[in-house]
Write a protein that binds this DNA or RNA. Sequence first.
DNA 1: ATAGGTATTATTGTCTGTCAATCTGATTGA
DNA 2: TCAATCAGATTGACAGACAATAATACCTAT
Lengths: 226, 226
Amino acid sequence: MELLRWGMDLDLRITRKTVQQEVVDKLRQAILSGTFAPGHRLVEADLCEALGVSRSSLREALRGLQAEHLIEIIPNRGPHIPVLTWEDAEEIYEVRELLEGEAALRCAARMSDDDIAELAERLETFHRAARDENADDLADAAAAFYELILSRCGNKIIQQMLAGLLARISYLRKRSMSLPGRALKSHEEMRAIHQAIADRNTRDARKAAMKHVSNARASAKQTFPV
Amino acid sequence: MELLRWGMDLDLRITRKTVQQEVVDKLRQAILSGTFAPGHRLVEADLCEALGVSRSSLREALRGLQAEHLIEIIPNRGPHIPVLTWEDAEEIYEVRELLEGEAALRCAARMSDDDIAELAERLETFHRAARDENADDLADAAAAFYELILSRCGNKIIQQMLAGLLARISYLRKRSMSLPGRALKSHEEMRAIHQAIADRNTRDARKAAMKHVSNARASAKQTFPV
DNA sequence: ATAGGTATTATTGTCTGTCAATCTGATTGA
DNA sequence: TCAATCAGATTGACAGACAATAATACCTAT
């Protein structure tokens, strides 16, 4: 009886999101999936109608997304999808290299055997997507691979920061992953990361992860007009 | 004539903050200065009255602060100042060590001679505060020292991330800085950082910065009840 | 025709007020 | 003492209003 009530409460806690939270999630997903092009203006009235929420709820959600750097809000001009310059992107890749290297190192030191097996599976999923050359599947598979590393690195701050950085360059990653040969090259690099983690070799894990990000940055740079 | 109009526009752009932004700034300052104790509940109605703004503006500001992790908002219970567990704080110190090491390394590679002189001045200011043993002056002087390193590291992402992390542990830093001997020890470590940067020794700069954070973590740990 | 200024419209920033849902704390009853 | 219940406080969400600002269309004079 007690347990049942607890279970219900727990269920509700998890399920019952506030409207504001749902709006944040929906918009975040829309932004990450590329529904809005960089530079696209987000008009409050339109979003309210599309989402079926009031302006107050929407505006609160927008403030949250602004803090995540997923949108920019200019006073009196409203929110829009930020347009990354290559300089901005490069700084993100630099920090990502640092943090992702650290995350991989930590995974090599502390990941469970089950997690390593799961990582191998996700790697294989990515490999299949790479051969099929489906851009969306590729992005999803890569995200799943990273997600496991982030969530098992043993430091929530690193996890959150990296997740935020990955989000901000998601469309860059999608774009550069479509460069000829990049997907398979990427798979090789990810395989090296998995191998080092499986070998419990912290130094190699960091090195492999950093190399991977470094190559990803080079690919992304190619997709930028001069 | 044209210039005059430009000047006015520029002035307005900088000066005219939105109400929401002002509220964020005011509340952030209040939180960082320790006006609210950890765990303190922030009641919307009270804040509205104290700040003289409407609930809409206030709530938008709160969402921003939530995203900065300066407050937590629990659905239907409202916002409160987060209570850091030592585990949370430790993870922050771990990342801070990584990022601050990198920032110092970059400063050693790229800081101008003028900046290095300025860094020496701020170090001396900190030294004076350390001898006077004024907790608030100490915190301000330390913040000024870090601020210069962050702003000159050449990567805005690192700068923002570190600023956010420092904010989240500001009251820990204030507390641990008051431990007997810690301020002077801290000064020694900061002097080492400055020296390595002045010598353009990137490796030493990183090592000194990491050591500094590592010691700060140990001091902070002492201030936690078992 | 066009540069420069003006009117119009669209959109945002902010406030007020309302109401239901939920939490908190006190009261009650067993 | 403990659990159930109730009342007050607080939040979540909405609608509507209006001024300030930005964006656009429209002039007008040269």
